[in-house]
């Protein structure tokens, strides 16, 4: 045995040290959470207002030119069980016991809208190797471009909310997800789900407006009559309703650095299937590692130089041997 474990570990440690000194020591390479874009737009989903009429599901289909999805034998009614590459928006129901009390954990029911939350620091965008998933620098919409996509489904796997979905039943598949009706915005229209929502449970607006609206709703005393706007913040299309008792949690305010769709609910979000998440985004952790190791290609180039030099030395030795 001419190679000792110690020698090997020494060499390995040396290599590690090169990486460490070029990367970790430089705080500029540590990547914090991304910031909310300046003109971020988004949605407010207030589960206590939602009556489960599914108008948003239908509106989404029309706006995005999606065919109905069937989960029953009859194939008569649009009955998607979950979001998919063919359904970008679904209303799901939490139910317990008799289910008779709305927004109550025990013997109650509650609705939840499942669609893209448009993260401030999206995992799918960080994951996508070909920039098919992008976050608009202005309005923050997380968009998808099929022409760029290679179909690796890293976004599908990475999204903490399970939003991007893939078409497994076609040789020319695409990813399907809510893009906040970005094709309708230039026409002056808002997201179709918010436009059609009869109760204002889904409300469109800038993130700033939405945050204001959330504060207003949370400030109201449960039971007092409150005017709720529909379609978009500032639309003037209002109806009055008794203020509900919200859980003390605005989903999307802090989750993984925040999302542009935020949610209010009368039952804990875990019951609605929303994961409990830390404030630091996963993409920032992942990219910090990547930047540390490969930032500016400094570490790889230094390492390559060392490796080539060592290889050259070794190849000379070997030639001498032969």
């Amino acid at each position: 045995m001419t190679i000792s474990r110690r020698n090997f570990l020494k060499a390995a440690a040396g290599g590690g040290a090169v990486l460490a000194t070029t990367g970790v020591a430089d705080p500029a390479l540590a990547r914090p959470n991304l910031e909310m874009p300046p003109k971020a737009i988004g949605l407010l989903y207030d589960a206590t207002l939602c009556v489960g009429c599914k108008a948003c599901v239908v509106a989404c289909r029309e706006a995005n030119d999606l065919s109905p999805v069937f989960s029953t034998d009859e194939k008569l009614w649009d009955t998607p069980l979950d979001i998919s590459a063919y359904t970008f928006n679904v209303i799901k129901m939490y139910k317990d016991g008799s289910g008779e009390h709305k927004d109550q954990l025990k013997d109650g029911h509650a609705f939840v809208k499942r669609s893209c939350l448009h993260c401030v620091d999206p995992s799918c965008v960080s994951a996508c190797p070909v920039s098919a998933m992008e976050k608009n620098a202005e309005n923050g919409i997380v968009s998808y471009d099929a022409d760029r996509c290679i179909g690796c489904r890293y976004c599908v796997a990475a999204c903490p909310y399970g939003v991007p979905r893939f078409q497994y039943d076609t040789p020319k598949p695409k990813i399907g997800k809510c893009e906040l009706c970005r094709h309708r915005l230039p026409e002056g229209k808002i997201a179709a789900c918010a436009e059609k929502c009869p109760t204002g449970a889904t409300l469109f607006g800038t993130v700033e407006q939405i945050k204001g609206e959330i504060a207003r709703r949370r400030a109201a005393k449960p039971g007092e009559m409150v005017a709720y706007e529909r379609q978009r913040v500032g639309s003037g299309d209002t109806h009055e309703k008794k203020a509900p008792l919200y859980v003390n949690h605005v989903y999307g305010e802090k989750e993984l650095g925040g999302t542009q769709m935020m949610m209010l609910s009368g039952v804990p979000f875990v019951a609605l299937g929303m994961p409990e998440l830390p404030e630091r985004s996963y993409s920032s952790i992942s990219e910090t590692i990547q930047h540390t190791l490969y930032g500016g290609l400094i570490a790889p180039v230094v390492a390559l130089g060392g490796l080539v030099a060592l290889a050259w030395r070794a190849s000379k030795n070997h030639q001498d041997e032969e």
């Binding site: 190797p129 070909v130 930047h291 490969y294």
Partner: peptide
């Protein structure tokens, strides 16, 4: 790869996304 015919995008400047581990 679902859309293997686009594979070269990984090497296409402007499309390639170096932040991505993939």
């Amino acid at each position: 790869l679902g859309r293997y015919w686009n594979f070269y995008h990984i090497f296409t400047p402007g499309l390639a996304h170096p932040d991505s581990v993939m």
